[in-house]
Amino acid sequence: MESKYQYLTFLGLRFNLANCLSILITAGLVFFFVFVLSRKLTLKPGKRQNVLEYLIDFTNGIVKSIMPGDEGKPFYFYIFVLFTFILFSNMLGLFFQVRVGGFTFTKSPTADPMVTMPLAMVTLLMSHYFSVQKFGFKGYLSNYVHPVGFLLPINLIEEFTNFLTLSLRLYGNIYAGEVLIGLLIMVAQSMGLVSAIIAAPMTMIWQGFSVFIGAIQAYVFSILSCVYFSRKLEREE
């Protein structure tokens, strides 16, 4: 199972065309979805508004389950967009894989560590930013030696492990799902019609399971982001 990508080089940076396209498509889909649902807003919500408000309540609930008070308010919007974006990108590779001439053009953008890492980076940078905003820069730094000084190296290492686990967990789950779908497709193509008939239900089952995994991973990513936010916003005494 190998997938080849086309690369563009621009200003010395390498761009994976498949990732960029998928990110664009995902972002477009998220925006389109949210945009369509938020038309004709009324005090008495209609069907589409209800769907959107349910989704918003759900993501707000994620934040509230970690930060029940007012301190969670600045994160409601970020978690909403993060959750929908990751959910959509996880789903994209399951339904929409385009391969032309051996080159993959669309897939789940989250099946690449170079995509999940900046997502985790954004979350962690935000947590540091809000921590500095709340405690001041000195207070923020002193949080690394709380509750006792010798925990400083552990606290520092934790920042990196947080970053790596957050990004690689998402990447690993989605990438594994895509690899398995690719393998099943190879099986289907290996021996003509017979293998295709055998592989079709297996693919369907695995796709269904991947939908489940994709939703769970989006939820886990959101809830862990909230956990990191809340940890940076409280002082361990």
């Binding site: 949210v34 918003i56 170079m114």
Partner: peptide
């Protein structure tokens, strides 16, 4: 690994945040 992807994602994600905030989140 292509670092451009990361940059592209961050830019797209921030754009998405702004657009969603303006068109959907704010009004809702």
């Amino acid at each position: 690994a292509s670092l451009g992807d990361s940059l592209f994602l961050i830019v797209t994600f921030i754009l998405l945040l702004l657009l969603v905030k303006h068109f959907a989140w704010g009004p809702v």
